[in-house]
């Protein structure tokens, strides 16, 4: 009999069982969606307000001896201030471009060195040996009074 049958918008007949299968299947999918959506949103952490810093006091005159370096905090990341043998201040991001380790200044090599995988950068931040694929970003250094101020270029 066709009395139990209704028509889909397309005109094809849909049986009573087909209708209930569709309703049940749709209901189950809707239920799973209602569980999975909040769950996914919950797992993704809310964005924490990022400490945006465009300039920071990295050190004071006299903190560093020539041919040495110092890690300081720039925003939420570590950065490196170097006083070269010739008495010039230079600043770079301290995050190695290879795999995110924090680099350090090696006075014996006169290079910036990453201990994790033996990456080397020269005093312009260029990756000169080892695995780092890119140079370190360099920052501007200005001396105001006895404060050494580092700012993003």
């Amino acid at each position: 009999m066709t009395t139990d049958d209704t028509k889909t918008p397309g005109g094809a007949p849909i049986s009573r069982r087909g209708f209930f299968d569709l309703a049940l299947g749709g209901g189950v999918i809707a239920l799973l969606g209602a569980i999975l959506y909040p769950l996914t949103r919950f797992v993704i952490p809310p964005e924490s307000p990022e400490a945006v810093a465009s300039q920071v006091v990295a050190a004071k005159i006299g903190d560093l001896t020539p041919n040495s370096g110092k890690i300081f905090r720039f925003g939420k990341d570590p950065a490196l201030l170097v006083l070269t043998k010739s008495g010039e201040y230079r600043a770079f991001t301290a995050i190695c471009t290879h795999l995110d380790c924090t680099v350090q200044y090696r006075g014996d090599l006169e290079r910036i060195w990453c201990a994790c995988h033996n990456g080397n950068y020269d005093l312009n931040g260029n990756n000169v040996s080892g695995p780092p694929p890119l140079p370190l970003t360099q920052y501007n250094v200005t001396v105001r009074g006895d404060q050494i101020i580092v700012s993003k270029a």
């Binding site: 909040p38 769950l39 949103r41 919950f42 993704i44 952490p45 809310p46």
Partner: peptide
């Protein structure tokens, strides 16, 4: 307060 749907969970 901050985590989405955290209050619900």
């Amino acid at each position: 307060t901050d985590v989405r749907f955290g209050w619900l969970v």
